[in-house]
């Protein structure tokens, strides 16, 4: 049939154009290549951390000493990971953590130390071990610090240094600082010390309460600005508001960026936060709720509207048939 042939030609050129300007062009635009011109494939490791990316990055830099250092560090992490931790013994070690991670919402050395109430549930075990061993190495921002002890959490080196202690405290967190966690809790603990979300009325110091008096509201605003200034001074720039991030970045970008910020944005001051798969799902759910709340309504309404037009088209087809019957 001639009409179908014509339709096939139109569809072919439309789809070809779509392929070229969307998937193909975007791939070419965001392609990353190493010094030899080979494409660097950035992929997710399912939110587990063993230093593969970190070592590959050091290799690409051609820094042999750094490669050795990174390999040694992540192999130490693997060793501790195999040890059996004692949660009861870990509780005493955890008291050290509470000195800073106490929920007082006070900036220490650049940022507010995050609340650890669900640390065992939302962060990866290996990452927690790595973070306690060496915060800068674990979060893959060691290029920012001449010496790890200048990291805001650098003092951990002098308080918890024994491998068994690390295994114990991680075991404690996995047993007692876990449990059911909501998207909001996961997001607050993992992201909020640096990022605001104005669509959920959240700032670096947490959710903005309702104020009865303008004076109190302004006082709160000043507190927010002061905190933002500290974060800005520490990070080099104020980290972006995440309200629309779920739509401003694709699923692949978000996933790989959160797993290892240096992969997508080499040199960024954003540390790896070490979320595990469950933690990431919760954070993503929160971001979707803030930036794309109509997703559910969209998916529910879609079939009805499309179904209506299929029905409409079938009726129109028979009308057309009847109208054109005696024309040929």
């Amino acid at each position: 049939m001639r009409e179908l042939k014509i339709f096939a030609v139109v569809a072919f050129f439309s789809l070809l154009t779509y392929y070229l300007v969307e998937p193909y062009a975007h791939h070419e635009m965001h392609k990353k290549v190493d010094a030899n011109g080979n494409e660097i494939i950035i992929k997710s490791h399912g939110f587990t951390y063993d230093g593969t990316d970190d070592i590959a990055e050091a290799e690409r830099k051609g820094d042999a000493a750094l490669v050795t250092k990174k390999k040694a560090f992540w192999s130490d992490v693997a060793t501790v990971s195999k040890m059996t931790g004692n949660a009861a013994a870990g509780e005493a070690v955890f008291a050290n953590c509470m000195a800073c991670h106490n929920g007082a919402n006070i900036n220490m050395g650049g940022v507010i130390p995050p609340n650890l109430d669900h640390a065992g549930a939302i962060y990866d075990k290996n990452y927690l071990i790595a973070l306690i061993k060496d915060p800068a190495m674990a979060s893959n921002v060691d290029h920012k610090y001449a010496d790890t002890s200048t990291h805001p959490m650098g003092s951990i080196k002098f308080t918890v240094s024994d491998n068994q202690q690390i295994a114990d405290v991680v075991a404690y967190m996995q047993e007692h600082k876990a449990g059911e966690v909501t998207p909001k809790e996961a997001f607050t603990e993992a992201c909020v010390r640096c990022h605001a979300v104005r669509y959920t009325k959240t700032t670096q110091i947490g959710e903005t309460p309702k104020f009865k008096y303008k004076k109190d509201e302004l006082a709160h605003e000043i507190k927010v600005i002061e905190e933002q200034d500290k974060v800005k001074a520490y990070m080099g720039n104020l980290p972006p508001d995440l309200s629309m991030m779920i739509r401003a970045r694709g699923a692949h970008y978000l996933e790989t960026f959160i797993e290892n910020p240096q992969g997508q944005l080499p040199g960024t001051s954003m540390p790896r936060v070490g979320l595990n798969a469950e933690g990431y799902e919760k954070v993503k759910a929160y971001l979707s709720e803030a930036g794309d709340p109509s997703k559910k309504a969209r998916e529910e309404l879609g079939p009805w509207v499309i179904g209506f037009f299929i029905f409409f088209t079938i009726l129109a087809f028979f009308w057309k048939k009847s109208m054109w019957r005696d024309l040929h």
């Binding site: 879609g302 509207v305 037009f309 409409f312 088209t313 009308w319 057309k320």
Partner: peptide, 21 residues
């Protein structure tokens, strides 16, 4: 018009597929 409406129907199926998904 009957041909018009039929083709428009097909077009709107595609159009709303794009709008929703």
């Amino acid at each position: 018009l009957s041909k018009d409406i039929f083709v428009m129907g097909v077009y709107f199926i595609l159009f709303f597929y794009l709008v929703f998904y």
